[in-house]
Write a protein that binds this DNA or RNA. Sequence first.
DNA 1: TCCAAGTGTAAGCACGTGCTTACATAGAGC
DNA 2: GCTCTATGTAAGCACGTGCTTACACTTGGA
Lengths: 198, 198
Amino acid sequence: MVEIQPKRPRDAQATRQALLDAAAALFAERGFERATVRDIAARAGVNQALLFRYFGSKKALFGEVLERNGREQLKATAPESLLEAALRGMLLADDGRLGDRSLEAFLRSTGGSDEVAATGRLLGDEYARVLAGLSDRQDSDLRADLVLSWLLGIGLMRVVVGKEPLASADPDEICELVLGAARTLLEGLAVPVPPPAP
Amino acid sequence: MVEIQPKRPRDAQATRQALLDAAAALFAERGFERATVRDIAARAGVNQALLFRYFGSKKALFGEVLERNGREQLKATAPESLLEAALRGMLLADDGRLGDRSLEAFLRSTGGSDEVAATGRLLGDEYARVLAGLSDRQDSDLRADLVLSWLLGIGLMRVVVGKEPLASADPDEICELVLGAARTLLEGLAVPVPPPAP
DNA sequence: TCCAAGTGTAAGCACGTGCTTACATAGAGC
DNA sequence: GCTCTATGTAAGCACGTGCTTACACTTGGA
């Protein structure tokens, strides 16, 4: 992801980025509450006081992590591919370090604090708006919310709860089942052909 | 729910029940981590030391709450009505004190600890088994997991995240959309006619 | 009546947490 | 070389947490 610089000894920008990366990983692994500022700073290899100097608070750091990663995917993928991209991203989140970790971070943190839920709501609104644009139904907003709910629910059961057989199921198989049903629900959503070569 | 006894002054059974009720409410409102043993004991009107005498630990108390409430619904409803019952229970959980609060408690606690997720997984297995029994497809277990995931996802978005328009949507409308799609997914699931007069 | 078990309580321990403060050190401009 | 600011660090504060301990009161049976 990030090019390794020849280690400029004192680089605020690099330190900030290291904290951001470490936070993204730890929030995804343990959720907001159980990821401590001490662990985040340790993984980034810096003193924890810097975390507060650069981000102000743990909550602000969480918000920045979630927003950055979320909007990245949102901006990078076309509307008609968003559902599949988001679903595949989450399905791949557990094996290897691929996939969208920010969704996992969100799922592991929702119960924690109201601010966390609020941050997620903002991002959810953007996702839902794009999804709703794919439908021409009267209640397209509600249908989009339901599709988005399904996506999160699958992530919840698969990566945080680890429910079998869902947790070990083949992503392709899941995609086929889910995208088919979601298309029916949205009606008029064009499910894209297998994704273009990267 | 519970009949108010003429207040037998020292009644271990009643105290235990009071703790169980208070815990169910607080876990649903705040999740496992943010519901403190002090608050639970205070709402039950007893000393917090009793909580540990009767249940051993906070985690054990959580497990007992979740198990009791979950299995209650599971035992009380016929398989072909389970999906709708669980969905309606969750949709009603926010307004008033109706609905199944244990699902809400679970949703607000998943990220917290691994044991919590494990407790939920056990219950989820039972729900999924019943749901899978309604389908005669080859991969009915996976399909049941997906339906269950949807249910939890909807709860997550509606009651803990508060995503609009889902959060304020009419339960009947949601049921119609979801049950239709779920029936298609399970194929062969008989969606019951509007529920019998209560 | 008296004792033992059952039920309840006040106080505190040990620990982890987010966050702050006081201080060290490196690097750029003069 | 000197200073001044940006960057980094060690130590600790204040607080909330789950859980324990030592003790008081009630009750029922002998």
